[in-house]
């Protein structure tokens, strides 16, 4: 199923490229499209570490970023989990970009590599009846498809949390 999604995304990319080049779209349309794309990319690159723009990056209407959302319940209070996650992120490959202790929000970023511009990880906690709920959202810097990077970030964070619960 995972590879089917990747294959479909690749096919879509090839078809789009063929469509643009073969049907020789109007130059102005292409220029505007390129300008908008580059501007958005630069905007995202500059403001990716701002927790204040969480709504913009994680919005379902933002079609230029791919997102992966998930929730997990922990039987530990939100206050403790908030501090725990900060500790976990500081000991991992992710970089802590910002925190808001009043609503237990955390923003971490993954580093830029040859295969990715990096992703932003938005994590926040809400106290629940038996502990807390961790809400996780991994967002690509710029890209409509994440090639599984977002899901990998989630599983990486979960593994790191699990490992850190052995003291």
């Amino acid at each position: 199923m995972k590879y089917l999604k990747h294959t479909l995304a690749l096919v879509f990319l090839i078809i789009s490229t063929v469509f643009i080049t073969r049907y020789n779209l109007n130059d102005n349309i292409l220029k505007v499209f390129c300008l908008v794309t580059i501007s958005l990319f630069i905007f995202n690159l500059i403001f990716r570490k701002s927790l204040a723009l969480k709504k913009y990056f994680t919005s379902r209407y933002n079609v230029f970023t791919s997102k992966f959302r998930s929730e997990k319940v922990y039987d530990i209070s939100a206050e403790l989990m908030f501090e725990k996650i900060i500790e976990v992120i500081n000991n991992s490959n992710f970089k802590l970009a910002g925190t808001e202790s009043n609503n237990f929000s955390i923003l971490a970023t993954s580093s830029i590599s040859f295969s990715s511009w990096g992703e932003s990880l938005y994590i926040n906690f809400d106290n629940s009846k038996d502990g807390c709920v961790m809400r996780f959202c991994s967002v690509t810097l710029f890209g409509v498809y994440s090639w599984g990077k977002n899901e990998n970030n989630y599983h990486e964070i979960l593994k790191q949390i699990d490992d850190s619960l052995t003291i």
């Binding site: 530990i76 725990k84 619960l165 052995t166």
Partner: peptide
Amino acid sequence: GVSTVNLSILKQGKVKAIRFST
């Protein structure tokens, strides 16, 4: 040499495991 967060979680009995060294 263990963080206060980890000790708080241990105090609540919510850790997965505890090392002999700890």
